[in-house]
Amino acid sequence: MWTETIQVEAPYNFDLVLDRLSLDPLQIIDFEKRTIKVPLYIEETPLIVQIQSIGHTDNPTFILQGERNEYKEKALERVKKVFHFHEPLAKIATHFQETDLQALFTEHRGTPIVLDFDYYSCLVRCIIHQQLNLSFAHTLTERYVKTFGFEIDGVPFFPTPERAAKLTVEELRDIQFSTRKAEYVIGLSQKIATGELHLKQLAEKTDTEIIDTLVKIRGIGNWTAENFLLFGVGRPDLFPVADIGIQRALQQLYNLPQKPTKEEMLKYSENWSPYLSYASLYLWRSTEKRSEKK
């Protein structure tokens, strides 16, 4: 067992992080202890890192604990990227102070973008979530993981690509996947299991190269590719104009009679770059139900 205490540059509101992550039933969160248990793959080895907040928004301090000392440095590096410990949020918030999103950035001050814990699970999650309301998307994802994945100390892990590649459409239909969604998840998994697609290498490429590669895969369109860039790879300047949640948030923000057009969305967002990903997050956050688990 290893333990590491780290200090993060303020502001950083870990309670709001836990609040948003708690929308996902697969997250193992303890609000009283202010902890989350994070399932990671380090060099293809599944392991868990627990993060505990012992500070507050203006003095963010964390205790990280994990097994396997030989993987400590790589696990720390991954956690810092996933939870955006590595880059100050203050400069991002300052950027939005003179924009139409100023009130949102004040209300949700110190909320970072938290990445999916694994590239592959991010893509699978995006495929499952396609064209579903958020509540059922979470339910279906949980059902998939708990039926075909595995647990370590009560922490669920997605099925590996090798495991998912061997599933049948009928097995996934039994847990309420549509035929096409089942085919998409199995097909993606087969490409990764056979080595045709290398997500770690892909993540090093440009935004355009990543999108061009992913949209050639059956079941992956621009929405899924952009979400992978934002929540998988952590690119800072993504604004998925096809996302219904963002459309609704903008409709609410500007009191529009109907959802904005793509052209209107691009016009609104002109001065939000180079942090469009953060604009997206705070717009999503403005319409999400707050946790009642505290």
Rank of each mutant, 00 (worst) to 15 (best):
E43K: 11
T5A: 08
G234V: 01
K37L: 04
P257Q: 08
K294N: 14
K200E: 15
F177C: 05
T99P: 14
F117R: 01
K293T: 15
R235D: 08
R180G: 11
L16W: 07
F85W: 04
Q27K: 08
H138P: 03
T208I: 09
L101T: 13
F157E: 00
R180D: 14
L253A: 10
L281G: 02
L229V: 09
V233Y: 01
T160C: 11
W272F: 12
D30T: 13
W272K: 02
H108M: 15
G195I: 10
L283F: 06
F14Q: 01
F228E: 04
T224F: 02
T213V: 14
E288R: 13
P60Q: 12
S280D: 03
I192T: 05
L172D: 00
V82S: 00
R78A: 01
F239L: 12
Y282H: 07
E292W: 12
Q27G: 00
H108Q: 10
E170T: 08
S53H: 03
C122L: 00
S291C: 12
T261M: 06
I175E: 00
W284H: 13
P260M: 04
Y278Q: 05
F231K: 01
S135Y: 07
E73N: 15
L253Q: 09
T168Q: 02
H86V: 12
G221D: 02
Y268V: 09
L23M: 08
Y278W: 12
S291A: 11
T94P: 02
G55A: 14
S277Q: 05
V145E: 06
A279H: 01
L26F: 06
E183F: 02
A10S: 14
E162V: 06
A90F: 10
Q52D: 12
T147W: 06
L47T: 01
R68F: 12
I192A: 03
G187N: 12
L214N: 00
K91H: 07
H108V: 12
L40M: 04
D15A: 04
I63K: 06
K181D: 04
L89P: 05
H56D: 15
Y275W: 15
D118P: 01
H198L: 06
S291I: 04
E142R: 14
L197E: 03
I175Q: 00
K294C: 07
E263K: 13
P260L: 03
E170Q: 12
P112A: 01
K146Q: 14
T61S: 05
P25V: 13
D153F: 11
L238T: 07
L266R: 10
R285P: 01
F62I: 05
L76F: 09
E67A: 07
K205P: 05
Q97E: 15
D212V: 09
Q190S: 14
L197N: 02
Q201G: 06
T35D: 11
T147C: 10
G66V: 05
T147Y: 13
G232A: 14
V185H: 01
G195E: 10
L238A: 05
V233K: 00
H198D: 10
L256R: 07
A279E: 04
E142M: 07
T94W: 07
Q190G: 07
R163K: 14
F85C: 02
I54L: 05
V169Q: 09
T139S: 13
E170N: 14
Y119C: 03
K293I: 14
K267I: 01
G219L: 09
R235N: 08
L172I: 09
D212I: 11
K80W: 08
I175F: 03
K81R: 08
Q27E: 03
H138V: 06
H95R: 10
R78C: 02
R163W: 13
E171D: 06
